[in-house]
């Protein structure tokens, strides 16, 4: 009778000593682990043994109930003896190097693209929804504090100038509340040397206007720009971008596993930069929203457009990007114009 025997190494429970050994089956169906001299190291009924699923060409591992371990390169014999479930080898067979893997690679690239394109957006939206208001307030307070430390100075605007802007702001906020949105918005004035006429919004609803902007803009322009910034808050643009960048990084490191020391950092920064691409779509969305809100609140809807035109005329031929995330003016004004038509 052809009885399969597997040759390999045996380890007794809790010991590092390696014994050359053989795994075999007795006539009564019991499994025996015996060393070279025939001494039985461990034995058990055939079904009590655990045969671990194979990985690559590494040794097959068979574990006895008492903890004795048997390692062998006789994969087939070990599988037969230990009664390994054929299904357990399926993964190993899928993984062996074969043209099929090229198809796997294509599917992975396609699936990865789908997740990046659609899954990330859904994930970011869920995360935005889960973020509690106090966390948003903390983000605003922290961001403003660090800006005040490095880039801004207290506003040099007179109370009259501030009042004029606050009235426009209240008009827009009131209009927004009539439409059913409650955003807890807050207006801040700062002098920001080097930033020119500028405005930006933070996730928690803090909107910052530079002195240069307030001084150069008329009431319709101010309404358009504040409407634009309110859109960023209302649509959670900033937070969405942050979660997209973090989510993409988490997704890559979860799916592809460890990416190596330097590549990991590069991916984190790269995803933050990539999320800027997304912000262009957000800017256009905010323009449309700001225009409509200004219009609803009784201001000239073309104020925003005139503001960009004025800004471009001032800065000369080469259109800079507004705070690095805004589309170039030409493109922007075209988009606004097409919106108007």
């Amino acid at each position: 009778m052809d009885v399969p025997v597997a040759n390999g190494q045996a380890f007794l429970p809790g010991s590092s000593a390696a014994h050359p050994a053989r795994l075999m089956r007795t006539a009564s169906g019991r499994l025996l682990l015996a060393d070279e001299s025939g001494t039985v190291l461990s034995e058990c009924a055939g079904k009590e043994v655990t045969a671990e699923p194979r990985i690559g060409q590494a040794e097959s591992r068979v574990i006895f109930p008492d903890g004795a371990l048997f390692l062998t390169f006789d994969h087939a014999a070990a599988g037969t003896l230990a009664g390994r479930d054929p299904a357990a080898g399926l993964l190993h067979r899928l993984e062996t190097f074969h043209p099929r893997l090229a198809l796997f690679a294509l599917l992975c690239l396609g699936g990865g693209w789908l997740l990046w394109r659609h899954g990330l957006g859904a994930m970011a939206a869920a995360a935005v929804w889960l973020t509690p208001a106090p966390v948003l307030d903390a983000i605003d307070t922290g961001t403003l504090a660090s800006l005040d430390l490095k880039l801004t100075r207290p506003s040099g605007l007179s109370d009259d100038e501030k009042d004029r802007v606050q009235r426009i702001f209240r008009d827009l906020d009131g209009q927004l509340q009539q439409q059913g949105a409650d955003l807890r918005l807050k207006l801040e004035f700062r002098a920001m040397p080097g930033f020119g006429a500028n405005a930006f919004a933070m996730p928690g609803g803090t909107i910052v206007l530079t002195d240069a902007f307030v001084r150069m803009a008329d009431r319709d322009q101010i309404a358009g720009v504040i409407g634009h910034e309110i859109a960023h808050v209302e649509r959670n643009h900033g937070l969405t971008q942050f979660y997209r960048a973090g989510g993409a990084f988490l997704m890559i490191s979860m799916m592809a596993g460890d990416t190596g020391p330097v590549l990991e950092d590069l991916l984190l920064e790269g995803n933050l930069l990539l999320s800027l691409r997304h912000s262009r779509a957000h800017e256009l969305e905010a323009d449309a929203f700001g225009r409509a809100l200004a219009d609803d609140a009784g201001y000239d809807p073309d104020g925003l457009l005139r503001f960009f035109a004025a800004l471009q005329a001032e800065s000369g031929s080469e259109p800079p990007a507004w705070l690095s995330t805004h589309p170039a003016f030409d493109h922007w004004i075209k988009a606004l114009n097409s919106e108007t038509r």
Binding site: L94, E95, F97, C108, G257
Partner: peptide, 15 residues
């Protein structure tokens, strides 16, 4: 080549 098979199968099943 062997690890590529394991890794790409992992990736596909994870996706």
């Amino acid at each position: 080549s062997e690890f590529f098979g394991i890794w790409i199968t992992n990736l596909l099943l994870s996706i």
